[in-house]
Structure formats: C-alpha cells, structure tokens
C-alpha cells in the first residue's frame, strides 16, 4: 500500500502536468474557434480561390492524423531548406500551433453545418426589416449559428482535452508524461489510473459548463 507521502510525491508533478494540459486546452479553444469561424466564411466566400483554399485546408487538416501534423510542425519545419532555421519553435508553442490549426478545421465544419441549418426566411425577414448585412450577420445569424453548433462544439472540446495527451509524443511534459514517469519509477500502473481520473474530472467540468450554456441559450 502506498503511503500518503508517496502518493503526494506522485501526484504533485502530475497536477503540474495537468496545468500544462489545461493551458493548452484554453489556448487551443480560444484561438481555434474564431479561426474556425473565419475558415467557414472563407468556404462560403464568393471569391472562388479563397473558397478552394479553405476547402483544401479543411481536407488536409481533417484527412491526416493530428499526431503527424504535430510531428511535422515540431520536427519537420526546422528541416525546410533556407527558412528552416527560423522555424525552430519552442515545443509548447509549436504544439499550440498544431492544435489550433487542426481544431480550427473541425470547428469550421461545425459552424458551416450551423449556418446551413438556419432557414433562409431569417435572412429574408431581416432584409425586409431593413437590417444591413453586418447587422443581420451579428444580430440574427451568428447567435443562432452558435446555438445550433453548441452540442457539437462540446463534443470537440471534450476530444481536445484527451488529445492534449499527444503532447507526450513531442516531448512537452504534461499529465500523461508525468504519469508514465511515475509508472516507470515505481513499478506500478496506479499512476495511469490517477491520470485517468484527472482527465475524467477535466472533461466533466467541460461537459457541465457547456450543458449550462446549452440551457442558458435554449431560447424557450
């Protein structure tokens, strides 16, 4: 049986690692949601090259493993000829970039679905009332789009928490990294269970916050 002291010695670095996980989560969410929305707009743009570019971007980001993208950003970019030497990023920064670029593609598809679900009568009613394009977008369309997209955004956010474990592969110390260290040092797989409980706790908090938002914006 593990003593309390031993337990704390094991837990402390894991909690520090969890901070890294949480930090990555917030950076990725805060940056990829607006970026995803911009990509949605690009997809819907009447300017064809922009739309093609956005489609291509989504196709590549969704069509290749996130792990591969992370490895390319961390280890691939510096190996590019000429510009490579300027692209040696801090591992954590590189990882953030990878998560943001990848998740933005998923959020773009979620928002696109949200926009498609909005009846064209909403645009017509706004037009007849004299609202201009900007007012229609910001006051009528976006609030409805976010409401429709909310359950899918929740789902992606939960996935994101778990995907942060991929930091392990690019050697940024996070929760899973410290769990693995403890497993190796103490010859017990108990730290993996602790890590699992910490992940569950984080996803629980996220699910509950989004559920609260869904209730708050139910419009009934």
């Amino acid at each position: 049986m593990m003593s309390m002291d031993n337990f704390m010695t094991m837990l402390k670095p894991m909690l520090e690692g969890a901070q890294m996980t949480v930090l990555l989560f917030f950076i990725a969410i805060i940056a990829s949601i607006p970026l995803g929305f911009l990509i949605t707009l690009a997809v819907r743009s009447n300017f064809k090259p922009l739309s093609w570019f956005a489609h291509g971007y989504i196709y590549i980001m969704r069509g290749t493993p996130l792990l591969l993208q992370l490895l390319l950003i961390c280890f691939g970019l510096p190996m590019l000829p000429v510009v490579g030497e300027y692209l040696v990023l801090d591992r954590f920064v590189a990882a953030c970039l990878g998560f943001i670029l990848n998740y933005a593609a998923y959020f773009a598809e979620i928002f696109r679905g949200g926009l498609l679900a909005i009846d064209k009568g909403q645009y017509e009613a706004a037009q007849v009332l004299g609202l201009n394009k900007w007012q229609t977008t910001t006051r009528i369309i976006l609030p409805q789009m976010f409401r429709i997209a909310l359950p899918a955004v929740t789902n992606e956010s939960v996935t994101l928490v778990k995907d942060t474990a991929l930091l392990y592969a690019v050697a940024v110390p996070e929760l899973l990294h410290y769990a693995q260290t403890a497993v190796n040092r103490d010859f017990t797989i108990f730290p993996f269970f602790v890590a699992g409980v910490i992940y569950l706790f984080m996803t629980l908090i996220i699910s509950m916050s989004f559920k609260w938002m869904e209730r708050r914006f139910k419009f009934e």
């Binding site: 009846d119 009613a125 007849v128 609030p143 409805q144 419009f219």
Partner: peptide, 13 residues
C-alpha cells in the same frame, strides 16, 4: 413596405 411571411420567420433567439 412591411412583409408578413407564411412561416412567420420570427427570430427564435
């Protein structure tokens, strides 16, 4: 001109 639609088109939010 004001317009009233078959499907109301009220803003649900």
């Amino acid at each position: 001109m004001g317009m009233v639609f078959q499907h109301f088109n009220l803003f649900p939010h």
